[in-house]
Computed example of a mutant assay.
Amino acid sequence: MGLGTAMIMPGTLSTITTTFQPEQRAKGVAMWSGFGAAGNAAGGITTAIAIGTLVFAITEGNELDVAGREAVTSGGLHLTRSPYR
């Protein structure tokens, strides 16, 4: 996913800068960056929900308490999000 994003983002920014008139370009770039940030946040939340659901399903029959499940979920989330930081 990161490689695909790295390949497509410069192209989308280039399209925005050539499509918008110079006086409207700042608004176009602001919307582009806002949607990018919103997508990043939504991806993090979606990843956390998916990992939490998976960990809960895997540990259902095990003797982990709520704190243990939260620790495993938090660890999994940090493992998937750390390459982006």
Rank of each mutant, 00 (worst) to 15 (best):
I51L: 11
G75S: 04
R69W: 06
V66T: 14
D65G: 14
R85Y: 03
T12E: 05
Q24I: 03
T73R: 13
T19Y: 15
L3G: 02
G76K: 05
L13G: 04
G61I: 04
T15K: 07
T47V: 10
N40Q: 12
P83A: 07
G75H: 06
T18D: 00
G68V: 03
E63H: 09
A48H: 08
T59W: 02
L64H: 06
N62M: 06
P10D: 01
V29Q: 05
G68S: 01
T18R: 05
T46S: 10
A30K: 13
G61W: 07
T15V: 06
M7R: 14
T18Y: 01
G2P: 04
A42P: 00
L77R: 09
G44P: 04
A57E: 05
S14Q: 09
A57C: 03
A26C: 00
M7W: 15
T15C: 03
S33C: 07
L13Y: 14
G11K: 10
G76V: 05
V55E: 07
S33Q: 12
E23N: 02
A30G: 04
N62C: 01
A50C: 08
I49S: 10
G2T: 12
H78I: 13
S33I: 12
A71M: 03
T17W: 09
W32M: 08
K27S: 13
A71L: 05
T80I: 09
A71N: 01
I58L: 03
P22M: 01
K27P: 03
L3H: 10
I16P: 00
T47W: 14
F35L: 14
Q24F: 09
L54F: 14
E60A: 12
K27A: 12
I49W: 15
E60T: 13
G36T: 10
S82R: 02
A38N: 14
L77V: 15
A42V: 06
G75K: 07
G44K: 08
E63W: 09
T18G: 00
E70A: 13
F20N: 02
G43R: 10
D65M: 08
A57T: 07
G36W: 11
V66W: 14
F35M: 13
S33V: 15
D65W: 10
A6S: 09
M1P: 01
A38F: 15
A41K: 10
A50F: 14
P10K: 03
R25K: 09
A38I: 15
Q24Y: 08
Q21V: 05
V72A: 05
V29D: 01
V72G: 00
E63S: 11
V66R: 15
A42W: 05
T73D: 04
F35C: 11
A6D: 07
G34L: 15
L77C: 07
P10I: 06
N40E: 06
G28H: 11
M7Y: 15
G43W: 10
A30L: 09
P22K: 02
P10C: 02
W32G: 04
L13F: 15
S14N: 10
G11H: 07
R85T: 01
E70W: 13
L3R: 11
A26P: 00
G36K: 07
T17K: 12
H78N: 09
T47R: 11
A67L: 15
I45L: 12
A50M: 12
V29P: 01
L64Q: 03
